[in-house]
């Protein structure tokens, strides 16, 4: 299945080095991260040195080289969110999930990321959970949101 996906992404873009970022964006969207072997294929197909593919993948924040957790919690740390206490939200997840922004929990349930601005500044602090935006976030609300997901996991686990 993976190779068909990659085939679709590369279609019409082969031997066009300038498509590198666009291709990696699509890879990130489809796979959830940029697998190492995919980078090798992309390098060959677009005609870009592997070094350059690696550099691009490491330079832009949009790309992650490790698989991410089931739930991606993105905390906006833009100026407007910062003055309204986004640091408290980071403290909250750090305390609750015992991880640093950018990391994934051992059970693969959560990845926590920070983003410099999602452009919903009037509603800060903003947290994006799996692509859905929540405004006026408080540590309490965030704690309950995380509890909710963890609670579900407990219910599901007997069937797993």
């Amino acid at each position: 299945m993976n190779s068909t996906n990659l085939e679709t992404i590369l279609e019409g873009r082969r031997s066009q080095p300038h498509q590198l970022i666009e291709v990696l964006q699509d890879v990130q969207d489809v796979y959830g991260y940029i697998p190492k072997d995919v980078m090798g294929i992309v390098a060959k197909e677009l005609g870009v040195p592997l070094m350059e593919v690696f550099r691009v993948a490491k330079f832009y924040k949009a790309f992650t080289l490790k698989p991410r957790g089931k739930n991606v919690i993105t905390i906006c740390t833009g100026t407007a969110c910062h003055v309204r206490g986004s640091q408290l939200l980071i403290d909250q997840v750090q305390g609750q999930l015992r991880l640093k922004p950018g990391d994934t929990t051992k059970d693969g349930l959560f990845t926590v990321e920070c983003v410099n601005c999602v452009g919903a500044c009037a509603l800060g602090p903003v947290v994006v959970q799996n692509g859905s935006y929540s405004n006026h976030m408080t540590p309490g609300k965030l704690r309950r949101a995380i509890d909710k997901v963890q609670g579900k996991k407990k219910e599901e686990s007997p069937h797993a």
């Binding site: 080095p17 300038h18 970022i21 350059e52 832009y60 790309f63």
Partner: peptide
């Protein structure tokens, strides 16, 4: 062209490098 989350790409020459698919 989609940016990849880099503030520096707001700078003209960096933006153009990014459109060209580079760092």
């Amino acid at each position: 062209a989609r940016g990849g989350g880099a503030f520096v790409c707001g700078e003209s020459t960096a933006l153009m490098a990014s459109v060209e698919g580079k760092v």
